[in-house]
């Protein structure tokens, strides 16, 4: 044994043991998340699967749990999200194009960028207060107050930062070669953007849009704040019509004491999660296609 070995105590066995313990601990941490996810799905399916039926999907809410259904909230969610997309998509993509292709380096551009980042961190219920005051009260003559239109506009503002950020990423991923080729042919900037940058980035933009939509479909708080109803036994017939959405209906059922409504809530949740999973599958498919395209 040389002097060197005496002066150092490697204690390798102990150090490795510590490492092993830590690794197990870290893996366990991940498992907590996964187990919770499994429990949640299990709990909801156990409670609600038996309640799912055609009758449940096609009935209006009712005072009696076994007669109630989700027709009006389901239709409300679809209409609200569609309308929201109509508002948010062009504005969000337009802003992304501006920031990526047109914006000069100046204070206004910086301001817009910082602002978009900050808006993404504002709690959704604050958007509800914004919608309540501006769309439902100040502009009540145009929006019809606590209406479908008010809800869609509020949600459009809520998802705008998500749309802008994801569209910017998709546009940034377009190879610069393509821009130069278009410009060298005598294209104006807009001709270049419209014919080449946008089509190329479109799958990526759509992926982001779908994720934004799936965020919006699950949102409850801002819509409660603007005053979407919790009990709607009719279908919206105009933009100014009152409405409800799926998460609000679920919230309403959860908040009631009777167990029958809790079962309805679980069944509603299954429908909601099924919609979200399909949307995410679509997004993954689109992203895959987008990546394939970038590889070539």
């Amino acid at each position: 044994m040389s002097l060197r070995d005496i002066a150092f105590e490697h204690q390798l066995a102990r150090r490795h043991l510590k490492g092993r313990i830590f690794q197990v601990l870290a893996f366990a941490a991940i498992c907590v998340g996964l187990v919770m996810l499994a429990l949640l799905f299990f709990d909801v399916l156990r409670d609600g699967l038996g309640r799912l039926s055609w009758q449940f999907l096609t009935s209006f809410p009712s005072r009696r749990p076994e007669r109630a259904g989700i027709l009006s909230p389901l239709v409300g969610s679809v209409l609200m999200v569609t309308l929201m997309g109509v508002f948010a998509f062009p504005v969000g993509v337009g802003a992304a194009i501006y920031l990526e292709e047109y914006a000069p380096k100046n204070w206004l551009t910086d301001l817009i960028q910082i602002n978009v980042a900050n808006l993404a961190g504002v709690p959704s219920i604050i958007y509800g207060l914004l919608g309540l005051e501006i769309f439902a009260r100040w502009l009540a003559n145009y929006t019809g107050g606590r209406s479908l239109l008010t809800g869609s506009l509020t949600m459009a503002l809520l998802i705008l930062p998500i749309v802008i950020v994801s569209a910017r990423e998709a546009i940034r991923a377009v190879p610069n070669d393509i821009r130069l080729a278009a410009l060298a042919l005598g294209a104006t900037k807009w001709q270049m953007v419209r014919s080449h940058v946008l089509p190329y980035a479109m799958p990526g933009i759509l992926t982001g849009m779908i994720l934004a939509v799936s965020r919006a479909i699950g949102e409850t708080a801002p819509l409660i704040t603007i005053g979407a109803l919790t009990y709607v036994a009719f279908l919206p017939d105009s933009l100014k019509s009152q409405f409800t959405v799926l998460p609000i209906q679920i919230f309403n059922w959860v908040s009631r004491p009777q167990a029958g409504f809790h079962v309805n809530a679980a069944a509603g949740i299954i429908v909601l999660l099924a919609i979200l999973l399909s949307l995410n599958a679509l997004a993954i498919y689109l992203r895959h296609r987008f990546e394939q395209r970038l590889k070539r």
Partner: peptide
């Protein structure tokens, strides 16, 4: 990706889970 599913679940669903499970 499995872990990230947790982030995509609507909060109203978590509310249900908290209150009733």
């Amino acid at each position: 990706p499995i872990l990230e599913i947790l982030a995509g679940i609507p909060t109203v669903v978590y509310g249900y889970f908290a209150l009733l499970f």
